[in-house]
Nucleic acid binder design. Structure first.
Lengths: 97, 97
DNA sequence: ACGATAGGCAAGCCGTCACTTGCCTATCAA
DNA sequence: TTGATAGGCAAGTGACGGCTTGCCTATCGT
């Protein structure tokens, strides 16, 4: 699980998606696509973004809720706090698989 | 540069190295190897650890100083604070002062 | 019912990454 | 000086990750 977190953060496009969700929660897949294109000049396909969102979801950084034919994505920054506790505070290290 | 930071954190062995340096700063390459083996049961070759340390150094997470034939590695967690400020600081409304 | 919209699934391609292998330099101890 | 120690460099390999391609299901508007 913690492994998924760092893998998720390793891709620059995924980090931009986190930025977009930080600014506006509850975006759909196409909204994320559009904002990546217009605000960052990224030509990312729908499938690519879909897979990125799946990775972010597996990492616990994004929660998704279905409403009709739409799927809205919300940001959850709580997993990031694990990073802080691991190295930024005088705390015992955690284990990674 | 920020790209290097996330790449460096993406590998579990490198995160363990950070853990070891958190516990004891100024370790040499062979010391890191030994501690990874004895404390985490990892059979990592010297060259592998050497490359990991180079990646951590490129990310700014580790600074190295040469003394004779030894090279000691020190941890620098400051780049990590940069990560946290990106998504964690515009935090959800919390009443705790 | 029909077409359009929103999204999912799976195979394949290609680049990157972690690791090995082999050989090299530099420092210290005898 | 010789041998042992500490580390570096570079090419090659295997696996994984990001992206595409093609086709699929589900929901909504008309």
């Amino acid at each position: 699980m913690e492994e998924d977190l760092f893998k998720a953060l390793a891709d620059p496009t995924r980090r931009l998606i986190l930025d977009e969700l930080t600014e506006r929660d509850g975006q759909s897949l196409f909204e994320v696509c559009a904002r990546l294109a217009t605000r960052h000049g990224l030509a990312v396909s729908r499938q690519a973004v879909s897979q990125h969102l799946a990775v972010l979801e597996a990492a616990g950084l994004v929660t998704a809720r279905r409403e009709g034919r739409y799927k809205f994505h919300d940001l959850d920054t709580r997993p990031l706090e694990h990073i802080v506790r691991r190295w930024l505070t005088p705390a015992p290290p955690e284990d990674t698989p």
